[in-house]
Structure formats: C-alpha cells, structure tokens
C-alpha cells in the first residue's frame, strides 16, 4: 500500500463544551480523491481548518508525509504542499482577478520578499497565473476587481488560487456550492484533471451526491464530529447508518415521520 501523504491521529477540537471534531483518525493517499460527506454542522470545515492550521486542535496530531505538523504555522503548511480552497470565498477584494492569482503564484515561486524588482518584471508568474485562469474559464474577467465578480465567478477564482499554489494535497470545501448548473462542469473537469496526476492527494467536501458518485475513490462520513464510515463509494453509500445520518436530512416527510 502507498504511504499516506496526510494523516490525522485522534484529532479533536472543542469549542466550549461542544466537541466539533471528535478523535478523528484518518489517512489519505496520493492518487486518491476522498470525498468527505456529512450533514451541515458535522464538522467537515472544522476538520479542514485543523489540517490547514486555522484552528489549533485540543488534542491529537496531524502528519504531513510522516512529519508532525500539528503546531506548524498556516503559511508554512501552505508552502509545504497543503493547499486549501475555502467554503466561504476568501479573496483579495479590491485587487484584480489576475492579481489575486498572481499573488499566490508569487508565494509559491518564493519571491515575495523581493523589494527592488518591479512585480511586472517577474513575467513567468504572470504567465503561470494566466494559465490558471484559463483552467477555470475566468480569462474574460482577468482585469475585473475580485469584489465585482458574480458569486459563481468568485467561486472559480477561489479554485484558481488553489491551482496557483499547486499543492501536493488539495483540499476543496464545497467548491461548487452556489454555482449555477452550467458552471459546475468546469469544476468537475478540473477535479478530474488533477486526479490524473497520481502524485496528488485530493480531499473534497461535497453535498451534491452525483458529483460525489462521479469523482470519489473513497468516501469518509463525518457526523457530529465523529468518523462514522470510511470505504469505497459503493459500500459506504449503502450503509444504513449513512442513509440515516446523511440522506436522512433530505426528505422532509420522512424527517417528520421519525420525530
């Protein structure tokens, strides 16, 4: 079996008395797209926040390629290959679309502390950033301010910024949420594209079951912060416990019947 690129051991975080992520142990392999599913408030985003470092865990460890990164700074993790696209779009609002992406490219190429060159003289970064915009079909809005984009385009820019970082581990938090139906395929194709590179590990939080079915190599189910099920899509989807926890929130008629 391939060594995991990312692993959490008994990862836990409490907010006051509420345990948002409860002793989650899970490993992720390169060349695998893992979908993390679970109802709203299950702790999926919080689990991501722990891994990428925005939140400090109450207990447990995080291993990146076997090294303990539990206390490592957020920026450090990003440079070590842990990339994240946020559920709540987080852009540089009054900078242009291309500049949002170029800044990430600049971070990855490591010349952010250059004081005496002009940013325009680093041509490669601009070209590479433009290539990322092509991949999410956002070239037309290249020079628009990020704040002036439509919601769907902001979601695309969010993804383009992750592409620019080109991490070893991609963490997508509901990348298609709020996108119109005709915009979703762009993101699906993109995920398929990244999957082809077997060196990449992909973690995807997704609500749309058809998306999960078409992409997932493996499904992890979170519920109330606890890892409920983990396995091949075909096996996990049919578990009664998953139906109850995950799909149970769907039909309102059955929902009331349970009460």
């Amino acid at each position: 079996m391939i060594a995991p690129s990312l692993a959490t051991r008994d990862l836990t975080v409490r907010f006051g008395g509420h345990v948002a992520v409860n002793a989650v142990s899970c490993s992720f392999q390169p060349g695998t797209l893992t979908c993390i599913v679970g109802p709203n408030g299950a702790g999926k985003t919080t689990y991501f926040n722990l891994i990428s470092g925005q939140i400090t865990p109450s207990g447990g460890t995080i291993l990146l390629n076997g090294n303990d990164i539990t206390r490592m700074a957020v920026s450090q993790r990003a440079l070590r290959g842990l990339g994240r696209a946020f559920q709540l779009t987080s852009l540089f609002p009054r900078l242009s679309v291309i500049e949002n992406v170029r800044l990430v490219m600049q971070s990855r190429q490591g010349f952010g502390l250059s004081l005496l060159s002009t940013w325009t003289s680093h041509r490669q970064a601009i070209e590479d950033a433009d290539a990322c915009l092509v991949r999410v079909a956002l070239t037309k809005r290249r020079d628009t301010l990020a704040a002036e984009l439509s919601h769907g385009d902001q979601r695309k820019l969010e993804v383009a910024m992750l592409l620019a970082l080109d991490p070893d581990i991609f963490m997508f938090d509901e990348p298609t949420a709020g996108m119109s139906v005709d915009e979703v395929p762009v993101i699906l194709d993109l995920l398929q594209g990244i999957k082809k590179d077997t060196a990449k590990t992909i973690l995807l939080v997704e609500h749309k079951m058809d998306v999960v079915r078409s992409l997932a190599d493996r499904i992890v189910v979170l519920h109330n912060g606890t890892l409920l099920a983990d396995g091949k899509p075909a096996d996990v989807m049919d578990l009664p416990i998953v139906h109850e926890a995950y799909l149970g929130s769907l039909p309102p008629v059955q929902g009331t019947a349970h009460v």
Binding site: Q54, S75, L103
Partner: peptide, 12 residues
C-alpha cells in the same frame, strides 16, 4: 485586503 488569505497562501 485579507490577511487571513495572505497567510493561507503562504505569506508570513
């Protein structure tokens, strides 16, 4: 503009 995201993309 957004120090949270600047940190998340690798800037200390």
């Amino acid at each position: 503009e957004n120090s949270f995201r600047a940190e998340a993309v690798g800037y200390r």
